[in-house]
Design a protein around this nucleic acid. Structure first.
Lengths: 340, 340
DNA sequence: TTGAAAGCGTTACCAC
DNA sequence: GTGGTAACGCTTTCAA
């Protein structure tokens, strides 16, 4: 026989006190006489009272959940980010709620919603957050942390993308590769994702420092998907001067590249080397050489930054840059016909 | 210069009408004179007005997001469930918010919170939801759909666990296996997860129908993790009468079993066969024979059931049982020493 | 068709 | 230390 949830007034009545007193007891701000406190507590207990988040939120102007906006939450990299965030946020007792973004419109919808909800804290992953939104959250004193994206004056955790891509370039060149291709995402996308571009630039710079250059015809970008990456790889393999190695902007795309190489009857790591990016869970299982995106650590770090901001709103914006290390596995090896 | 968000009163003032009129225009219930409607719309536009979800929620007693409670959201099976839910919920314009559960306390916290929030709809994945909670949501007219868990009178989407495990048994026995082990989760856990138990029972029944039986010493349960599953497998392999095949309660655990087999210097699929459960994304990539848990389809189906319940609250509770098909890959083969 | 008034459940601000 | 009272922003009566 489910009864209507009790209100603070009912608790007050049962305890023989006023509503504000109940509020004080439950929120523990000011001191209340011991016997009253006791009466309130048992009344609340007896009525199974739980405050209405909406009424409280309306009154205080803030809601008590931490929100996290994350694009394509089912993608391997997002999964690891979320894993880290979930772990890192465990310290604060506030519940976490996740908002997925699959279409550009989703972002603005969530931003609007959260702007009005004034969450206890907000983490935005990978998406470009405009100045109006940032200013709005700042004005509302909503602690904000960006993960894999940045904004002036806002705390963020990012990866050293250039360094990572540079290490990939160095690894391949040391193995003897001279023709390295890049497969990534469309560089101007509606979400404002920038990592693929940064990784390409990092590769380009890395190769240049080693006296090589990234042949423009060896750069393929498109929608982020394994199948698309496979198609691009197939094209590259059939072209005039096929690459002997591929750097993909993500492990997902690297898997596509591996699919294509095998379909072409070639051997990954022997005929064509592949390097991924992220070191998602699957990479180790399929022997994919990759750049460790420190996804879980980044998520944790972001959550901890947020926790600090929540505890001490005065603490100023911090940007953490995480190192991107190379994880060598079997998908890379010397190129064929390596005549010195 | 971020300004405080506009209230309905301010919009009303600017439009030269009363607040209720603004409300009527924006919610489109009743009819409003065309010129007033126009004035209201442009005032709202000009002030960048967006209603406060809290005030609205407090007044109407419902919030306008769909909620989903999912345990261990970073686990492969949860990821695929979420993928399906996200896809299936796209039809309703309501935003989705995800609540992760990592500790038993998280569930009750979220349930409490959502009970007071009265979301537009709620999906609970895999967790046991008590009668009080179910009754509470029913009393509050919150549409509820359960995924991979059930409750009398509540719509749910479940997998034919027994059928799936039976197919696994049949496949192994047909290959010639006689000693099949099972590696699963603790069967009484604080979350109320039941799938591992059902899968074990299904295996047991399947073997019995084929004239075999599941040796109790070949059943190992423990915390859900790859490493634990690996340790169990190692033990099984070193025991008196080692199994020639292992059914794992999940792909994650199957991967652990494969790790252990390789560590023992044996070959997966030749010396020892392994079948997983779920057909998570990774299974195909590592050649794991598994039972397709239809994770994405189940998520979609659950979301669509919820959408129906939201549109037509009168529609009655439905239980959808999904088929669990065998996906044969390279991790299963005939047992060694198969002397007929 | 429109507005005035009330109230959702809570907390902040005063008095006492 | 405690209790009125008001107010958060909105929608829902109810009259006009």
């Amino acid at each position: 026989m489910p009864r209507k949830p009790a209100t603070i007034t009912e608790v007050a009545a049962l305890a023989g006190v006023s509503a504000p007193t109940v509020s004080r007891v439950l929120n523990g701000n000011t001191s209340v006489r011991a016997d009253l406190r006791e009466r309130v507590l048992s009344a609340a207990e007896g009525l199974d009272y739980r405050p209405s988040p909406m009424a409280r939120g309306l009154r205080t102007g803030r809601s008590s959940t931490v929100a996290c906006i994350v694009p394509f939450v089912s993608n391997p990299s997002a999964v690891d980010h979320v894993r880290g965030i979930v772990e890192g946020v465990r310290g604060v007792d506030t519940p976490l709620s996740l908002y997925d973004v699959e279409r550009p419109g989703d972002l603005v919808a969530h931003l609007d919603h959260l702007d009005r909800m004034r969450p206890a804290g907000l983490i935005v992953v990978a998406l470009h957050v405009g100045s109006e939104a940032v200013d709005g959250f700042a004005a509302a004193n909503v602690p904000l942390v960006l993960l894999d994206t940045t904004h002036p004056g806002v705390s963020s955790v990012v990866l050293d993308e250039h360094g990572g891509a540079d290490r990939a370039a160095r690894h391949l060149v040391e193995l003897g590769h001279r023709r390295v291709a890049f497969i990534g995402d469309d560089e101007d996308n509606e979400f404002g994702f920038t990592s693929s571009r940064e990784r390409r630039i990092g590769l380009e710079r890395g190769l240049r420092e080693l006296g090589l250059q990234l042949d423009p015809s060896h750069v393929r970008t498109g929608p982020h998907s394994r199948a698309v990456a496979a198609a691009h790889t197939t094209e590259l393999l059939l072209a005039e001067n096929p690459p002997t190695a591929v750097l993909a902007a993500s492990d997902t795309q690297a898997l596509g590249a591996m699919d294509a190489i095998r379909s072409a009857g070639l051997t990954v790591g022997a005929d064509v080397s592949v390097i991924g990016f992220d070191d998602a869970a699957i990479a180790a299982d399929v022997g994919l050489t990759t750049i460790d995106g420190q996804l879980v650590a980044a998520g944790q770090k972001a959550a901890r930054l947020l926790a600090r901001l929540m505890t001490d709103p005065a603490s100023d914006a911090t940007t953490v840059v995480l190192d991107a290390r190379l994880r060598v596995r079997s998908s890379t090896g010397p190129p064929p016909h390596d005549d010195p």
